[in-house]
Design a protein around this nucleic acid. Structure first.
Lengths: 121, 121
DNA sequence: CTGGGAGTTGGAGCGCGCTCTAAGTCAAAT
DNA sequence: ATTTGACTTAGAGCGCGCTCCAACTCCCAG
């Protein structure tokens, strides 16, 4: 798989894929073809797909790097990896709660404007 | 109300409050005391509180600025303000959905690690 | 043999949202 | 009289997450 294909598939740009690699997010650097071009494996693509989900859910790059480092350590790091994901899970829940709570205010405001537009106040 | 008191109340720093003012987020610049210090009104504090909720829910500064501009225009901008908030509302809903969806994967991963730790695979 | 297109690298640049610094003013406390 | 502390300004700096640039190699089609 070429970098362009992985970009296509994951929605990241080739630039970002190289950046992710540089910054330590890959389990291991993807193998190269004879021409020196990256040849991503299926496993690479799956890992990157996971990374995009973690990013999309708000995990900072630094935490993802820690996660990648742990993953490279293999079975020894199951507990640490689980803890990292649990911490992230807590952040996600908190963010959902925050959004839900702020949604009330936004809804209230929208409703207020609706009534004002209809001339009720 | 001094800038420090508003900072205390809203959780923003004095630095950020001045920045928000500079960047056009206030309805009008807060009045000054004889010493040239800002003297925030209750209305200022309420407005800033609203700003913090919009920020917390992910609204970019640029959109908040647009919202403030509209608010300065008064009754004429009810429709536009409503539309702006509705657009933001849609973003918030989308983000909640995104989080919910990513939560499934994180939960799945956590569960996987739990089982591996217990030696089930 | 000449383009064009896809990849490579190191490193610079950018947009966002703050965050802080430097230098100054003023008022109250010692 | 001096120190402390809260404020003021213009403007610089920063951390994050990309995003892009310049210069290069390589391969293939015309």
């Amino acid at each position: 798989m070429t970098i362009a294909q992985v970009a296509q598939r994951t929605g990241l740009t080739a630039h970002t894929l190289r950046y992710y690699e540089r910054t330590g997010l890959m389990l291991e650097p993807p193998p190269r073809g004879d021409n020196g071009h990256r040849r991503y494996t299926e496993r690479d693509a799956d890992w990157i797909a996971l990374l995009t989900r973690l990013r999309a859910s708000g995990m900072p790059i630094a935490a993802m790097r820690r996660y990648a480092e742990l993953a490279r350590r293999g079975r020894d790091s199951y507990v640490a990896r689980k803890e990292l994901l649990e911490a992230h899970r807590a952040d996600m829940i908190a963010k959902i709660e925050q959004l839900r709570s702020d949604l009330e205010i936004v809804d209230y405001k929208i409703d207020l404007y609706s009534r004002r537009i209809r001339g009720e106040e």
